Structures are given as structure tokens and as C-alpha cells.
Amino acid sequence: MGQTALRIKKATYPAFNLLSGLFIRLFNPFKKGDFIEINGHLGSVEHKGLKSTTLKNIEGEEIQISNTLFYTKHLHNLTLENIVNIEFRLDVSFSEDMAQVKKHIVGFLEDNINILSSPSPRIFVSKIKNTHVELGVKAWCSIEKYLEVDAETEVHLKEHLRGKGVSLEIKDSEVDQLMMA
């Protein structure tokens, strides 16, 4: 019985996928240029085809998404939801326990009422330098709170990490700000 169900699924999948592509064109849940999240993939819509949709992710890579996913998984059209991302970099000393640093960052972002939990924030290694690791942090907020969140989150996160004993590299621009204060 299980083999028969698998064969039926394999036989009907191409037709369902094509039908999903037609529904996408008919109902327009997103358009070219919209920023969407589907099944863990995040990116801007580059092309809507009959069998698949092409997204360009944050790193600039193109991802092919089977159109069936748009009718079997939850679609977030972030363009329609009026949310934007904030992004900043943190220079963390090699001597730090990176798993613990990540835990501190995640905890800080979860406690910030202006940071959205979906799409989930991302923490990634941006660059490896001679004395430190440059971590990238991407989080999401409502467009109404963007200026406030963009202006304050990085500063408060650095204060939070330093309060937890995390050693951060100080950039020249930060030294200038400290000297002017």
C-alpha cells in the first residue's frame, strides 16, 4: 500500500507543481521584486515560472523554489507586511566562546520588543580578521519602528555584550565618538 501511494504522489507531483504555477500567476500572492520567506528560504522574487520561482537571497545567490511549496508551506510576503531588516557588524575577539556570544546576541534580540521573531534573526560570520571575527547580525522590525531600531539596537547590543564580559574590538569611528563625548 505504501509503494502505491508513493507512485501516485510521484506521478501527480509534476501536474500539481504546474497547477501551482498557474495559481501563482492567477492569484498573484507576490510579484517580481517582492521580498518573501518560504520554507526557510528568504529573498527577493526574480522570476515566476510555471514550474518554479527564482529568488535572490541576501547573499546574492539565486534559489529555485518549486511552486508546489507556495501551496503546501506558509508564505510570508515581507513587502506586503511592511517590515524591513536591520543589519550591523560586531567585531568579537578570537578569545571569546562564540557559542556563548551567539547565545547572548539571540537573548538580547528576543528580549527586544521591537525586533520581530519571524522572520527569525540571523547571526553569521562575515569576515575573519587577524585578531577578531566580524559577526553579521540581521534582524527584522516594522517599518514604523525602523529609525528607532536602526539607531539604537547596535549600540545597546554592544553595551549588553560588554556587560556580559564579551571582548569587542573598538572601531576608529567608535573611538572618535568616545573622545567627543
Rank of each mutant, 00 (worst) to 15 (best):
K103V: 00
L19Q: 03
Q3M: 13
A151W: 03
H47R: 15
L69E: 07
K171Q: 14
V149Q: 10
T131W: 00
F108A: 10
R25T: 03
I36S: 08
E148M: 08
L135S: 05
K9S: 06
S167V: 09
I8T: 13
H74Q: 14
F88Q: 08
L19M: 11
L75A: 05
F35A: 01
Y71K: 01
S20F: 04
F108G: 02
E148I: 10
S120T: 07
S120R: 12
K51L: 15
P121V: 01
L22P: 00
L26A: 12
I143C: 05
D34A: 10
S95N: 10
I38M: 08
T54I: 15
I105G: 10
S66F: 01
H132W: 05
I8D: 09
L26Q: 12
N77W: 04
E81L: 14
T53S: 11
I143Q: 12
Q64C: 01
V137C: 09
I8E: 11
A181Q: 11
I58M: 15
L78V: 02
L19T: 02
P14C: 06
N114P: 00
S173H: 09
L135T: 05
R162H: 04
N17F: 00
A5G: 11
T153D: 02
T12W: 00
F70T: 03
A11Q: 08
L6Q: 14
I63G: 03
A151G: 05
L135V: 04
N85Q: 04
S120I: 07
G60E: 08
T53R: 06
G163W: 03
G33E: 05
R7P: 00
F70S: 02
I113A: 09
H47M: 10
N57I: 05
G165R: 05
L135D: 07
I65V: 15
K31I: 15
S44M: 04
L147M: 07
R7W: 06
G2Y: 10
A99G: 04
A99C: 00
G21K: 05
G40L: 02
V106A: 11
T79K: 02
V125L: 13
G33C: 03
E144L: 09
S20Y: 02
R7Y: 04
